[in-house]
């Protein structure tokens, strides 16, 4: 059986050790999910954890990814629907 190597191994030194003591430089935009730095088994990027996500804290840990994905999906649906609606403006005018 091949040896699966990931940051999930117990001896691994993950960001949970937080070598910087959780320092957050100023003016760097919104702080990414801080939970990411507390558990070496998971991060805050859903795609990295996609095959083994943190189900227990799913909506808090991945909130930036999930929220943005939902908003952008809605905008894309809006573009498709609005284009159709724009195209039909004046259709009742007849030929």
């Amino acid at each position: 059986m091949p040896h699966e190597t990931t940051a999930r191994e117990p001896h691994d030194d993950g960001p949970g050790n937080d070598p910087g003591g959780g320092r957050v430089p100023p003016s760097c935009g919104p702080v990414e999910n801080r939970d990411a730095g507390t558990d070496p088994e998971f991060g805050d990027l859903l795609l990295v954890d996609l095959l083994h996500p943190d189900w227990r804290n799913f909506f808090t840990r991945y909130r930036t990814d999930l929220g943005g994905f939902a908003v952008v999906s809605l905008i894309c649906i809006f573009i498709v629907v609005a284009t159709r609606w724009l195209a039909m403006i004046g259709a009742g005018a007849g030929r």
Partner: peptide, 13 residues
């Protein structure tokens, strides 16, 4: 993977 789980906003290795 350790890097991918470490946000830029956290000081790190």
């Amino acid at each position: 993977y350790r890097k991918m789980r470490t946000p830029l906003t956290l000081a790190s290795e």
